[in-house]
Write a protein that binds this DNA or RNA. Structure first.
Length: 733
DNA sequence: CTAGGGTTAG
């Protein structure tokens, strides 16, 4: 009675006072302890029972095994099993099933099978337990095999059996098998069963047939949270977040109380949609109910704030969170990395290591992502060397991030090395190395890798072709680009998306086929994006097409009136055509609209530290050395006959002042610093937040010849490898 | 004695 009422202390006292205790009194109390999570006490009691020499019966064994299932306490399962064996209870279906279940939880499928084989009279329940054990441990074939054997023998599967079989189908991704089990379910009238229904939902939503799932869901009882939560979660995961939130609201209207599972998934939907209001409402709610301390819920909340740009709120939650796990750290690292604050992301990464929280593949992948955003090769290499010591060394996700990091940090050779060493390559691996080559202007390599990809099981997708086409477009391979574009639609069934069109417009345009570029834009079946018009404008600048350039620029400015680069390009076109009144007009227009110049920023890594230079920056401690170097470079380039191109300077200042302003562009400051401070002969890698200007490009080409060093500049779009006076971009960028 | 759902990622 006390146990049933939850008054464990009284029950235990009573137990202690009893002069004579029998098996039943022990078992009752064990169950009590077990139900209230006091597993150690329960196990202690079991040993007591054993010590006092009571005869252990089936009831005792099943009770203690049930307890062990909840703890996953493998060693004790062995001990209990030995005991059962000695007392020759192993052949009983009753005890056997409990043992199978216990071993299943511990992952010992083979031992469970041995137990199953020893059971003399295998009943329905024992078979079902074995099916569940197989399904649970990834032996889906065996599960289905046993399931069909059962039906041959004449057992009629019940709701428990169906659940296990459906789970096995899900494990095999056997949608058709699942459908035939579904048929049996309907025939045996288990359609309305809660658990069977949930297993069906799981199966259908996992393999894309969310509509079929919706059908099943509609037929199911509507008073249980689990199916609701499952549907919310699957909608959230399949980019149908509005439906997820909608379902959440319907659930509330049906008076079903959401729990931590439901909230975690709903918040995931809010994060993806960047729906801050909804997220905040749920935040209030979970705080009121008191489940904001659940790790899943608090992590999901952090994710919402991070995705919505409220990274500080996210950080507050992180700091205050009583339960922090690896995912919490990862969420913050990802949050900062995606916001572009790679430094904070990397700081959190080292913080995580210091706090001895175990890093996972997600951690490494995001930290590498942060490094590639910063183009911080040295920190990227450090993370690489850490992963080598872990089990994630061979992980595909980590490998892909390494490829990306090396490529984006300017070290395409090491990117390829990682790619070659990957044990398992997926689509992302191929796409990453292809777009890596493309970024570096190594189109032929990119195309070679693309051909290699054809020999594998990885199918080229949308992103693969973005890489292939941009490789062609970066290198000016017109015919091949055109051929790949056509083949993409015809042979690979990939619908052209806006990025593909952008590549093609730029490729046609830079090759001088401005008319064809315009024709292609007119053929785009949806609204052309700002990127498409920018590409056309860029091509017009190269080919001095003033009128078309003006049209393209107007389109860009319609979508983004404040875009500084476009004003600069437009003014460049007019300047080249010597239409100075138009140049002045653009300049005035910029002033009137208050176009704020995005400040040029370049950075360079030296001995583990990132040095930042803003345009006109004089704050660096090595400024004297830098200025000296700049003076020297200026003299040398003039001597080689360089004529400064001041078209990019839109200020009303004298010509010689314009020239001076060119020499404080951030990439030159960074370059001068690199030449002064970096180890001699090592390549100099510079990252810039904007597109490199015409004069800087020409100047750096000369400098690479003068100092005889490789200079690598990553600008907004791509890499420029300057070597002995030539740039890998072929002067198109 | 046998059964169901959640957070981070390129």
């Amino acid at each position: 009675m006390y146990v049933k009422a939850g008054m464990l202390v009284d029950a235990a006292n009573l137990f202690d006072e009893m002069s004579e205790r029998n098996v039943i009194s022990f078992v009752t109390l064990i169950q009590g302890f077990s139900d209230y999570g006091r597993f150690v006490d329960a196990v202690e009691l079991f040993s007591g029972l054993h010590r006092e020499g009571h005869e252990l019966n089936q009831f005792v064994f099943t009770t203690i095994l049930k307890l062990l299932v909840r703890t996953g306490w493998a060693e004790l399962v062995w001990t209990v099993h030995a005991c059962i064996h000695k007392l020759a209870h192993g052949s009983s279906a009753f005890v056997g099933t409990a043992l199978i279940d216990a071993y299943s939880v511990c992952g010992y499928v083979n031992v469970a099978r041995d137990v199953f084989d020893e059971v003399v009279c295998k009943d329905m329940v024992a078979c079902t337990g074995m099916v569940a054990c197989y399904a649970e441990n990834g032996c889906s074939e065996e599960a289905l095999e046993l399931f069909s054997q059962m039906r041959v023998i004449g057992f009629r599967p019940n709701n428990y059996t169906f659940t296990g079989a459906l789970k096995a189908c899900a494990g095999l991704e056997a949608l058709n098998g699942g459908k035939s089990v579904h048929g049996c379910v309907i025939k045996s009238c288990y359609e309305g069963d809660l658990y069977v229904g949930t297993a069906l939902l799981d199966l259908y939503t996992k393999f894309g047939d969310i509509e079929e799932a919706r059908q099943v869901f509609q037929e199911m009882p509507k008073n249980d949270v689990v199916p609701w939560s499952l549907m919310v979660s699957r909608y959230a995961q399949s980019d149908r977040c509005e439906e997820a939130l909608d379902l959440f609201c319907q659930m509330r209207q049906a008076f079903v109380v959401p729990n931590q599972f439901t909230y975690a998934s709903t918040l995931q939907a809010c994060a993806t949609m960047e729906h801050l209001d909804f997220g905040m409402q749920i935040h209030c709610h979970v705080t009121k109910v008191g489940i904001d301390s659940d790790v899943y819920v608090s992590n999901a909340l952090m994710g919402v704030y991070a995705k919505c740009g409220k990274i500080d709120d996210s950080m507050d939650l992180f700091v205050e969170s009583p339960n922090r796990n690896d995912v919490s750290w990862n969420t913050m690292i990802v949050g900062y990395a995606q916001l572009g604050d790679g430094e904070k992301a990397l700081m959190l990464f080292s913080g995580m290591i210091r706090c001895q929280v175990e890093a996972t593949e997600v951690t490494y992948s995001s930290a590498l992502h942060a490094s590639s955003g910063l183009a911080a090769l040295e920190s990227g290499v450090q993370i690489h060397s850490v992963t080598v010591k872990t089990i994630y060394d061979k992980d595909t996700v980590v490998g892909n991030s390494l490829i990306d990091m090396y490529a984006k940090c300017g070290n395409i050779k090491d990117a390829r090395l990682v790619f070659d060493k990957l044990k398992q390559r997926d689509e992302v691996s191929w796409n990453t190395i292809i777009s890596g080559y493309s970024m570096h202007g190594l189109a032929l390599e990119a195309l070679k890798v693309f051909e290699m990809m054809q020999e594998t099981n990885c199918k080229p997708n949308k992103l693969t072709f973005v890489g292939v086409l941009s490789a062609c477009s970066n290198a000016g391979l017109l015919d091949q680009g055109q051929a790949y574009f056509d083949s993409m639609v015809q042979d690979y069934d990939v619908e052209p998306c806006i990025e593909h069109y952008t590549c093609m417009v730029w490729l046609l345009g830079r090759s001088g086929h401005l008319d064809k570029a315009v024709k292609l834009i007119n053929e785009i079946p949806f609204e052309p994006s700002i990127m498409v018009w920018r590409a056309l404008l860029g091509a017009c600048v190269i080919h001095n097409d003033v009128e078309l350039g003006r049209t393209a620029a107007n389109h860009v400015l319609e979508m983004d009136p404040q875009d500084e680069a476009t004003h600069v390009l437009l003014s460049n076109i007019y300047a080249t055509a010597k239409r100075w009144d138009n140049v002045a007009y653009v300049r005035k227009n910029m002033k009137r609209k208050g176009v704020k110049k995005e400040p040029g920023l370049s950075w360079i890594e030296n001995q583990g530290t990132v040095h930042y230079f803003a345009v006109g920056d004089t704050s660096h401690p090595d400024m004297k050395l830098i200025n000296g170097m700049l003076e020297w470079l200026k003299l040398r380039t003039l001597k080689l006959g360089h004529v400064p191109n001041c078209n990019a300077i839109l200020l009303d200042v004298a010509e010689d002042e314009k020239e001076r302003l060119l020499w404080v562009h951030s990439e030159r400051l960074a370059l001068a610093f690199g030449l002064v401070r970096a180890p001699s002969r090592s390549p100099i890698r510079i990252i810039k937040n904007l597109r490199i200007c015409m004069d800087c490009h020409a100047t750096v080409k000369l400098i690479s010849k003068i100092v005889q060093r490789d200079i690598i500049v990553r600008d907004l779009n791509r890499f420029h490898h300057f070597q002995d006076g030539v740039c890998s971009c072929g002067d198109y960028w």
